[in-house]
Design a protein around this nucleic acid. Sequence first.
DNA 1: CGAAAAATGGACCAGCAAGTCCAATCCGAT
DNA 2: ATCGGATTGGACTTGCTGGTCCATTTTTCG
Lengths: 200, 200
Amino acid sequence: MGGALTAKGRATRDRIVHGAAEVLRDRGVASATLDDVLSRTGTSKSQLFHYFPEGKDQLLLAVAQLEADQVLADQQPHLGCLDSWDAWSRWRDAVVERYEEQGDHCPLGSMFLQIGRDTPGARAIVVELLRQWQEHLATGIRAMQEAGHVPAGLDVDRAAAALLAGIQGGVTILLSTGRSDHLRAALDQGIAGLRPISVP
Amino acid sequence: MGGALTAKGRATRDRIVHGAAEVLRDRGVASATLDDVLSRTGTSKSQLFHYFPEGKDQLLLAVAQLEADQVLADQQPHLGCLDSWDAWSRWRDAVVERYEEQGDHCPLGSMFLQIGRDTPGARAIVVELLRQWQEHLATGIRAMQEAGHVPAGLDVDRAAAALLAGIQGGVTILLSTGRSDHLRAALDQGIAGLRPISVP
DNA sequence: CGAAAAATGGACCAGCAAGTCCAATCCGAT
DNA sequence: ATCGGATTGGACTTGCTGGTCCATTTTTCG
């Protein structure tokens, strides 16, 4: 596995990972089998185990990483420049749209049930995703603070944490019920909480 | 299955369901087998399939219902009488404590990955749980409103939805990271959002 | 070119777990 | 007591799925 990977090999490996991601999206983690992946990607078992010697878990981990990267990528460029109320609003819409489109499957969430949350690699992926996500939010809030749009006294990290929790929960509920009301409410309230108190 | 259940039969059925719940908590849904349940409860396969003719899914569904009921029960009596700021504070502490103790497993969440979210029964259970939960919150907010502790103009259902989303997300993050910061932040901010704007 | 390394095909294996079946036993009602 | 239905025991079947193995082809590189 070291560095011995030709261009062809890398291509095959990528094909397997991406194909596996598709299969997991379609069939769900619980019922997706290696043979599904093989037939979808037109590869053989020996190839799969050649590139993922540790088997299914290793493949799932690779897919999890792929999906994790996608989560933040799908929120760009909005998430990267939260420096005006308008930008926050556009980001909000992007988040709602992304998860409404995603439908009723949760590529990342399901994966950790299968792999086990305490696997060294698995936990690291989700922790790192959450960290980066929250950092982006905090950066945005600080930018607003410096521009005087958000009260200076506001606890940035706490606000970012609460907002992130609201999103997570909103998505969870969207997955369970098919309705995005909670996600919208959480986003709106989270953002509203940043605004300075309007003195009548 | 109809009404033909003697006292002994009912006892056995209950023993199986509760034993299954224990096994799922210990081993996790993914790796729990029917044989685990049997050896834990000292029953035989024919008994299990006698009381759950539709097999494993039916058993999991029964366990899911059990766990769903437990979620709200564990928040009582606080959740039922959210009529003062002090009561809200006690409820908050109860929620945090409950989920900190629960550790890193999510009996309900994991179950739906296994059963499939679109199973007729599965979705109904979680939807009903969320509905009741949110209703309790809304009732509490309305009580506070009538007592004049919460601004009359506040959109109760929206606030309850956002708070519920925050809790869900906080718990999700607690499960993933082991830290309860987000849950606490979401609860605090959600409750703080109810308070009237303090005019300096 | 030619050898070594990488990539590939696909048959095969092993184990496990859900579900079936039938015989044996218990229990309540007549 | 006894008859019928409820309950129980546990061996057996069946299908699937992750994983192994080795022969073959392709690529790389001196």
